[in-house]
């Protein structure tokens, strides 16, 4: 990427970021809502050890779940809803009639949503440290790798919903349905250990559950090897979701 291309790309990212702030949805649910959850559930459940004598406290378990909530907002709501709207209103078609093409815009939209995810997680970690003395026992590499895989899984699912939905309405429905069901049943908001057995069985069917388990594990100091099942499921889902999504886009005329 030369200087001109980089400058152009950064300006496009700046515009996309401004649009995201003006649209409010992604900005609020990605940056402010998780913080509200942190304070709300922190005041409800407190920050006692998860079991008598354990070093691990309630918030050490909850905050990794909230990070997955942020990933879900960006990957399952903000990014796919933007893409679906641009597709339906033929906004991409106009960009395709310029030298840069729609790929330039889509890449900027992905970048801005990744930035939203990173910002949302950073705010959570800082607030967790300040308010609840959050402990991250895992090493930075494992936590980063787990976060990247979880983010990729959420974005791949959102991407699939945009490909499946012939119009923005269907994509909206799928995104809202899966996001909110997963938000409450995956352990991202309320720790899964508090669920009854029947809900726990149901949560095993949801991709977000494996992201929550993985993030909670690596935050608590588990090595990635200890979470082979989660890595395999999330990696596999990424491939399947991107694969089907890409196939549908290649097959259908969406200009």
């Amino acid at each position: 990427m030369n200087t001109i291309t980089m400058k152009r790309f950064l300006f496009t990212c700046k515009i996309e970021f401004l649009l995201m702030v003006r649209n409010f949805f992604g900005f609020f649910f990605g940056l402010i809502f998780p913080l509200m959850m942190l304070v709300l559930f922190g005041s409800i459940f407190g920050n006692n050890p998860v079991s008598p004598g354990s070093d691990l406290r309630m918030m050490d378990l909850s905050i990794p779940g909230y990070t997955v909530m942020v990933m879900g907002v960006a990957g399952l709501m903000s990014f796919p809803l933007t893409l679906a709207e641009c597709k339906e209103k033929k906004i991409y078609k106009r960009f395709d009639a310029t030298p840069v093409g729609k790929k330039h815009i889509i890449l900027a939209q992905v970048t801005v949503n990744l930035l939203l995810t990173a910002l949302g997680i950073a705010i959570l970690l800082i607030a967790g440290k300040l308010l609840y003395q959050l402990q991250i026992q895992g090493d930075i590499l494992s936590v980063t790798a787990a976060a990247l895989l979880s983010i990729a899984a959420m974005f791949s699912m959102g991407f699939l919903f945009t490909a499946v939905g012939k119009d923005a309405k269907l994509t909206h429905l799928l995104c809202y349905l899966f996001y909110f069901v997963m938000l409450f049943l995956s352990g991202a908001t309320v720790p899964a250990m508090l669920f009854p057995e029947s809900i726990r069985s149901l949560s095993k069917l949801l991709p977000m559950t494996y992201a929550v388990d993985l993030m909670q594990g690596v935050f608590a100091g588990d090595s990635l090897r200890m979470h082979g099942k989660e890595l395999l499921i999330l990696g596999g889902l990424c491939l399947v979701f991107y694969g089907i999504g890409a196939y549908l886009y290649a097959k259908r005329d969406w200009t």
Partner: peptide
């Protein structure tokens, strides 16, 4: 054709100018 609803006229012009 449609453009992002919340983009300002000037921002859209700057964005497109950057493409050339």
């Amino acid at each position: 054709t449609e453009y992002p609803a919340k983009i300002q006229v000037e921002e859209l012009c700057r964005l497109y100018a950057g493409f050339y």
